[in-house]
């Protein structure tokens, strides 16, 4: 069953067409990887799905409800759609635990005690329980990103958007974070992730989309995209990535 429906979405910044008719269906429990060159619009697409950016044309539906356009309760939408950013974006003036429990308490209407119990359980899962009282500045990048994932999960979203969550990490920290995403995929969480980690995309994705100049140029299973790409552009992109040693 289609859970996330993206229909002919156009996004412009002034004169600049960033998304030029993107359509994409994501079923429940699917993991969709967005790949493509820098500037192809991956982050923009994710931000549009989370209504952080208005779109000029087209329609985005989550679980059947239209979430794009005027008069939509974006705050309700965002309870169902979690997002993790490349630069973690933790709140520096709050402890790790407070970062995690903020939304469940303020939005989800949970009691502080219940939210903290759940938050600690989630932190434990990613090996960050002993840092619950620390401030984000005292954590490494990998640790911050793990907390950011937990923060997004704490509101029990139906779908998680991950925007190049390992791009800012030292190589030896990437593994920790990817392991968590892999586990979430195995648990059946619906995810849409922009990534430059092709090896990882090949491993976890049920569907891979290649974005080029604001369009989805090619899509398919990892096997189709990585082993038998149909489009020249896709081949070029993948061979460049191969040269860069990312596959």
């Amino acid at each position: 069953m289609t859970f996330l429906q993206i229909n002919d979405v156009h996004k412009r910044y002034g004169e600049h067409d960033v998304l030029r008719g993107v359509s994409l269906d994501v079923a429940k429990h699917e993991v969709v990887c967005l790949i493509g060159a820098s500037g192809s619009g991956k982050s923009t697409l994710l931000r549009c799905i989370n209504a952080l950016e208005p779109i000029q044309q087209g329609e985005i539906r989550v679980d059947g409800d239209v979430v794009s356009g005027q008069g939509v309760d974006v705050n309700r939408l965002r309870r169902n759609v979690g997002m993790v950013f490349q630069s973690y974006n933790l709140f520096p003036h709050m402890t790790v635990l407070r970062n995690v429990t903020l939304a469940p308490v303020k939005i989800g209407g949970k009691s502080t005690a219940a939210a903290e119990e759940q938050g600690l359980a989630l932190l434990d899962r990613v090996g960050m329980k002993d840092k619950a009282g620390a401030y984000p500045d005292a954590l490494s990048g990998g640790q911050q990103q793990r907390v950011a994932i937990v923060r997004a999960l704490a509101s029990s979203p139906q779908v998680l958007l991950l925007d190049e969550i390992t791009a800012a990490l030292d190589p030896e920290l990437v593994g920790d974070v990817l392991a968590i995403v892999r586990e979430l995929a195995q648990d059946g969480l619906t995810m849409l992730l922009a990534t430059h980690e092709m090896g990882f995309a090949r491993e976890v994705a049920s569907q891979v989309c290649f974005l080029h100049q604001g369009r989805i140029l090619e899509r398919g299973t990892p096997a189709q995209i990585f082993e038998d790409p149909q489009e020249d552009r896709t081949r070029q992109f993948l061979s460049r990535v191969l040269v860069a040693g990312r596959l």
Binding site: R47, N50, L52, V74, N75, R76, R78, R79, V81, G82, M83, F85, S87, N89, L90, F91, L102, A103, K106, I107, R151, A152, S155
Partner: peptide
């Protein structure tokens, strides 16, 4: 601005 984005993406309103 990323602090705004992070907070809004968690579902907090503008005022919150």
């Amino acid at each position: 601005p990323s602090q705004w984005a992070a907070s809004r993406s968690l579902g907090l309103s503008y005022g919150m």
